[in-house]
Simulated assay, not measured.
Amino acid sequence: MAHNINFNLTTGKHSFFSVQEKAWHGLGTIVENYPTSKEAIEFAGLNYTVEKRQLFTYDLLI
């Protein structure tokens, strides 16, 4: 079964963490104590910057 966990090429780690024990797939960071929301985002490698940009679409006339 595939784990489908994102591999971050910048950090060289999978975007996953668990508390006190390794998950079945053996990937990610293991931490001792339950983290705050902010810490969880950082442990999982999801602390990237999000930018808002305008979206442009084209209408196709058929």
Rank of each mutant, 00 (worst) to 15 (best):
I5L: 09
N6F: 15
F7I: 04
F7G: 04
N8R: 05
N8H: 06
T10G: 02
T11E: 15
S15A: 15
F16Y: 10
F16D: 00
F17Y: 15
S18I: 00
S18R: 02
V19I: 15
Q20V: 03
E21L: 09
E21M: 12
K22P: 02
K22S: 14
A23L: 11
W24G: 05
H25G: 02
G26K: 05
L27D: 04
L27N: 03
G28T: 03
T29S: 05
T29C: 06
E32I: 00
E32M: 01
N33R: 08
P35T: 03
P35N: 05
S37F: 12
K38W: 02
E39K: 07
E39C: 05
E39P: 06
E39I: 03
I41N: 01
E42Y: 02
F43S: 00
A44T: 01
T49Q: 13
V50C: 12
V50E: 13
E51F: 14
E51Y: 14
K52H: 13
R53K: 14
R53C: 13
Q54G: 12
Q54T: 09
Q54W: 09
L55F: 12
L55M: 09
F56K: 10
T57G: 06
T57H: 11
T57D: 09
Y58L: 14
Y58S: 13
D59V: 10
D59N: 10
L61C: 13
I62D: 11
I62G: 11
